[in-house]
Design a binder for these strands. Structure first.
Lengths: 131, 131
DNA sequence: CTGATCCGCAACTATACTCATTACGAATAG
DNA sequence: CTATTCGTAATGAGTATAGTTGCGGATCAG
């Protein structure tokens, strides 16, 4: 939505929340994370709201993914394995390596996709749908 | 652990649980999923337990991932977006496309890795560690 | 046949996480 | 000054994860 909006006319968290069908506080929390990552900026007061700080074509989905600080794709069991077991004492380190490779492939794919592309695709979908 | 174990000497869920430092029921729940996918088999009774049904080199991490039925890597917001908004009525379909590409890259990476490789890496880690 | 294992499954609980909601202070434009 | 909007904290409902107990069914040794 921000990519679609003119820079001079920022979007309020309430309008965005209306589109997502949720509440403004939830939106502000997420936008706060994106703001800390330098992707968006907020303006308080009358006529205020949110706008992109960088061009939509320069923001990759990976930028967004990292900004919101998602946890690892494949989590390890939260309890320490048994160090008396050959597998137990080596499996976590080993799995982190293997999972890391898969996660890297995932991130590379996200890095190739930009907000501008997503916006364009959404608008194309609009044209082709018969209403 | 199952890949390391001889076929003739199945592992009980209690032994596995001891290595993971959790309880047998949790292990049985997961192995039940792997069993339905044909990756492992269980044997009740004295001397029973679990064993691999296929060679460890033929089981990819993707096989395991799909067997445990993990949800999508990137979930959509659980409430329907506002259909009166251009973005709202197109964003879910659009994002599913983009997320799907990233998830496909992730799965391709998992497909290239096998249980046999993981076991070997864990055993190598054992050799190189100074105890 | 009997008893000791061991799986399979259901029920219940504790803990944690996600999101909705309310509230209130700070910043800003007119 | 006042209306608006962000920023953040507190609270609660709903859901997910995993720990625990219990018990029935299958299997094997004797």
């Amino acid at each position: 939505m921000l990519a679609q909006q003119s820079e001079a006319d920022p979007l309020t968290s309430e309008r965005i929340a209306g589109s997502v069908n949720t509440n403004p506080v939830f939106i502000r929390r997420i936008l706060g994370l994106l703001s800390r990552a330098g992707l968006v900026a907020s303006q308080p007061g009358v006529g205020g709201g949110w706008r992109l700080r960088r061009d939509a074509a320069s923001i990759s989905l990976l930028d967004v993914y990292e900004a919101v600080g998602a946890g690892p794709l494949l989590a390890l069991h939260h309890r320490m394995p048994n160090p008396d077991c050959l597998i137990g004492r080596n499996i976590q380190r080993t799995l982190l390596n293997y999972f890391g490779e898969a996660e890297a492939a995932f991130k590379q794919a996200l890095a190739r996709q930009t907000i501008a592309q997503v916006l364009e695709t959404a608008q194309e979908g609009e044209l082709s749908s018969p209403a």
